[in-house]
Amino acid sequence: MIAFNKPAITPEQQLTLLEKRGLTIFNHSRALAFLRSVSFFRLTPYMRPFQENAQHNFIAGTCFRQLVEIYDFDRRLRLLVMDAIERAEVAIRGHISNHMGTAYGSHWYLEATYFKNRSQHDRLLNDIRSKQENELRDYHKECDRIDKLKTDDARKANLKSKRQQESYARHYALTYTTPELMPNWAMVEDITLGTLSYLYKNLSKDSDKKHIARGLGLEAPLLESWLHTLTTVRNLCAHHSRLWNRELGIKPAVPKSNRIAWPNYLREGSASLHTRAAVILPILQHFMTHCAPHASWKQRLIELFNEFPNTPLAPMGLPNGWQHDPFWQNI
């Protein structure tokens, strides 16, 4: 262990440092404007594939514009990925809610018998309880502010009524006494994607898992794994982290049956491809095919790659010509 002694430097000094390391910069004013908007630290992971030693010297011929283009590509890719994740997430919530609610009633999730792990079930209930309590507390704070307004009682009552309707968790806690917690269809929409992933994984009956997965064109183990994958990728994108040369900390399950479409380059390729963007994209395309077939997501994805033809594909685990694989041509 050593003491940290790196000084903070200005964008102008950062630009000078990059040039000393061998990076070619044709337009200094534009490069400086970029570094002022996108921090040096955020740009650093995009530099690493173009650096050749521990001193962070750049491979001869590397230009600042190359880094900017890859950064812009990655930003646009994250937006596309988030679009697909949103549609997949909403659909998964709907399939879980529709099946479990109609099969077992409006408050099925209150019963531990529907879950394998008791502690995870308790955590779910605590999450929903905390959500309602927080919403109730916020509502009362808002009511206190409304009471201090210099207006008539009718206007205050109207404002309070509107505040009550802004959240179902708030509305439920203010309207109903039993059951204590909100119904299934509201619960499924209010929990985080991570909690939803744990909920599905923790369902006690395989028949329920299979029914939900079939509605999404999947087998239960795949949906369980892919839900976890969506959670991980969504968190990366939500924090504006890179996808281009990202190696996931997880390895999503892949289809073993030919009944589920999958790229040949992933069926036949190295297992290392299954921890990079190469595996994320077909997972998202599967959900888009089943949840939003008219959204032209695949076309927009391919157009993005065509717009940035110099983006290195290997860091994503994609082979040259990946878009010509039958998976991307036939769906």
Rank of each mutant, 00 (worst) to 15 (best):
Glu180Val: 05
Tyr172Ala: 00
Ala112Tyr: 08
Asp190Glu: 15
Lys131Arg: 14
Met187Asp: 02
Lys162Gly: 05
Trp185Glu: 04
Trp185Val: 01
Leu136Val: 06
Phe115Ile: 05
Ile146Glu: 01
Arg123His: 04
Asp127Gly: 02
Met182His: 01
Tyr114Pro: 06
Leu149Gln: 09
Asp152Thr: 07
Lys150Thr: 08
Gln120Val: 11
Met182Ser: 00
Lys160Arg: 14
Leu136Glu: 05
Ala186His: 10
Trp185Pro: 00
Leu110Asn: 09
Tyr168Gly: 07
Asn134Cys: 11
Ile191Val: 15
Thr177Lys: 13
Phe115Glu: 04
Thr178Pro: 02
Arg170Phe: 08
Lys162Val: 13
Lys116Gly: 08
Tyr114Cys: 04
Asn158Met: 11
Asp152Ile: 04
Asn184Glu: 00
Glu142Tyr: 09
Lys156Phe: 07
Thr151Met: 00
Met182Glu: 02
Gln132Cys: 03
Lys150Gly: 03
Asp190Asn: 15
Thr175Gln: 12
Leu136Pro: 02
Ala157Cys: 08
Ala157Asp: 14
Asp138Cys: 12
Met182Asn: 05
Pro183Thr: 07
Arg145Ser: 12
Gln165Met: 15
Glu111Trp: 05
Lys160Asn: 08
Leu124Met: 07
Gln164Lys: 15
Arg155Gln: 12
Glu133Phe: 07
Thr175Lys: 13
Leu159Met: 14
Leu174His: 01
Arg137Glu: 10
Arg123Asn: 03
Ser119Thr: 13
Leu110Cys: 01
Cys143Thr: 10
Ile191Ala: 03
Leu181Trp: 09
Asp153Ala: 12
Pro179Lys: 06
Gln120Leu: 15
His140Ser: 10
Asp122Trp: 05
Arg129Gln: 12
Asn126Thr: 11
Leu125Ala: 10
Asn117Phe: 06
Leu181Cys: 03
Lys116Cys: 03
Tyr172Ser: 04
Thr151Tyr: 02
Thr192Met: 03
Glu166Val: 07
Asn158Trp: 10
Cys143Val: 15
Asp122Ser: 11
Ala173Ile: 01
Ser167Tyr: 09
Arg129Glu: 12
His171Ala: 11
Asn158Glu: 13
His171Arg: 14
Glu135Ser: 11
Glu111Val: 08
Leu136Thr: 10
Lys131Ala: 06
Thr113Lys: 13
Asp152Gln: 06
His140Phe: 14
Glu142Val: 07
Leu174Arg: 13
Ser119Pro: 07
Glu142Met: 12
Tyr176Pro: 05
Lys162Cys: 08
Thr177Glu: 12
Arg118Gly: 02
Tyr172Glu: 02
Cys143Ala: 14
Tyr176Ile: 04
Arg163Leu: 15
Tyr139Thr: 08
Asp147Phe: 03
Met187Phe: 01
Thr151Trp: 03
Leu110Ala: 00
Lys162Gln: 13
Ile128Ser: 02
Arg129Lys: 13
Gln165Leu: 14
Arg170Ile: 07
Glu111His: 11
Lys116Asn: 07
Tyr109Gly: 00
Lys141Gly: 01
Leu110His: 05
Lys162His: 11
Met182Phe: 05
Asn126Leu: 12
Asn134Arg: 15
Asp127Lys: 03
Arg155Asp: 03
Lys150Asp: 13
Gln164Cys: 11
Leu159Glu: 06
